[in-house]
Every structure is written in C-alpha cells, then in structure tokens.
C-alpha cells in the first residue's frame, strides 16, 4: 500500500508517505506558513521515497476538525493532487489521528482527543485505539463547551451500559492547555493527559491505509473539510 497523507488542521504542518509499511515524513510546527510549506513537503517525501504521485494507491488528508483555513489548505491540495493524478481520497478525522498518536506515544488504549476550538469551546471525541491504525469511535466527534464533555455516556467495550463503563481515558490535545480546568472536570475518568501532541500526517497515513484497504475511499471533489462548527455568521 502506497499512501500520501497531508495534515494542516492545527499549527502543525505535515506530510507523510507510507510506502510498503515504511513511513517517510515531514513535520513542522509553524503557526502560519502552512501554505508555503505543504507542497514542498509533498515533493520532498515523494522524492525521498523515489515514487511518482500517480503510482500511489490513495491520498489521505486530515479533514478536521481544526482551523478552518488550514483544513481547506489540506483539502484543496488533496483535491488537486488526487484529481490531477487520478487517485482516490481518504478523509481522516484529525481527532482520530491525534488519539492514535497519543496511544502510540503513551502506550494507552482509550483516548479522549480534545482540541481547542476557540470561542470557549472544544472539539472532542473518544476512541479505543487498540489498533492505532484503526481507532474505534467510542464517543463521536463534536464541538461543545469543555464542561459538556460527558464520558459517562460512553458505552463499555464489553457491552456494559454507559453508567457501568469502567473505562478511564488518556487525554490528548491542546484543549487541555486551552482550558486548564478541563482535566479537573473529568475527574477520575481521566488518567493523565498530554496537551502538547498535535495531529500528524503519520497517523493520517496509517489510518488512511486501513480505510483504503477496506475500500472506503471517495472521489477527489469529496475531499471536504469537516468543520463541526457551522454557526459562523449571524443573519441580519
């Protein structure tokens, strides 16, 4: 499986090339400047891997949630590359990619991914990352006030009712640094957190490969961001 993956959902900008199980990657925390760096990163990993764009199996991209303009940079570049080279696309959740990253870095299985959504809100979702290349959603992604994160509604892996669910979660994402009270609010359901990790194209590639292998790909024009927040203007 040969997958190119892109991510510009947060202040990190990254590209990764999954080539027969090996990963070549570029990752920079930029704040601004994703627009300048993304295509050069793509060119670099392809050159390093010695593989032509058209020889890939699919392009995966972090489709959000995240910064709106950044999401459209990855989505737009994915559209152009995929249409131009005749490749299918795999949209990958940035919360799932971030959860998978935390699972690998901290050897945890159950992860609550939580990104600062500004406007006093967070994007969040919970996953079972037993296989980090295929996170299983336990609580679907949504945008809410930090105080509205409810892990007691997450059903247990053994079919337990939500209230009996024994799971404790490891937290990841800058939602925890943006809202320092969050960890306390989650109480005993949280077993530590890492606010520094950011979504990375490496996990987007790994999850993308799983999806592509299962045939879950879309056409280039369907490489669309998932914003979660849709109230962006007020009618007069």
């Amino acid at each position: 499986m040969k997958i190119l993956a892109l991510d510009t959902a947060t202040e990190a900008c990254s590209a990764a090339l999954l080539l027969h199980g090996e990963i070549l990657e570029r990752y920079e925390v930029l704040g601004r400047g994703h627009a300048e760096r993304l295509l050069p990163m793509v060119q670099e990993v392809l050159a390093e891997g010695g593989v032509a764009l058209a020889a890939l199996d699919a392009i995966a991209f972090g489709r959000g949630p995240g910064g709106f303009t950044g999401l459209r940079i990855a989505a737009g570049v994915t559209q152009g590359l995929a249409f131009g080279a005749g490749l299918p696309v795999v949209p990958v959740s940035d919360l799932a990619a971030l959860a998978a990253r935390a699972a690998v870095h901290h050897c945890r299985r159950h992860v609550l991914a939580c990104l600062d959504a500004r406007m006093a809100q967070v994007y969040w979702a919970a996953y079972d990352c037993a296989d980090p290349a295929a996170p299983v959603t336990l609580a679907p992604e949504r945008v809410s006030d930090p105080g509205d994160i409810r892990l007691e509604f997450v059903a247990g892996p053994g079919g337990q009712t939500p209230s009996e669910c024994p799971l404790r979660f490891f937290g990841v994402g800058h939602g925890f640094s943006g809202y320092p009270a969050l960890a306390g609010m989650l109480g005993s359901r949280l077993e530590g957190f890492d606010a520094t990790l950011l979504p990375h194209a490496r996990e987007v590639a790994l999850i993308g490969a799983t999806e592509a292998a299962a045939g879950r790909t879309v056409a280039p024009e369907e490489a669309q961001p998932i914003y979660l927040r849709d109230e962006v203007a007020h009618r007069r």
Binding site: A35, R72, F83
Partner: peptide, 19 residues
C-alpha cells in the same frame, strides 16, 4: 479575501504539480 483566495491557490497549485 484571504481564505477564499487560499482555496483557489491550493487547488490550482496542486493540480499544476500533479499535471
């Protein structure tokens, strides 16, 4: 509009690269 421009730039630059 910077965000609107960015969409055209992303699609155009990547199409040209792929072609």
């Amino acid at each position: 509009l910077i965000g609107a421009l960015m969409v055209g730039a992303a699609v155009a630059e990547s199409l040209a690269y792929a072609w």
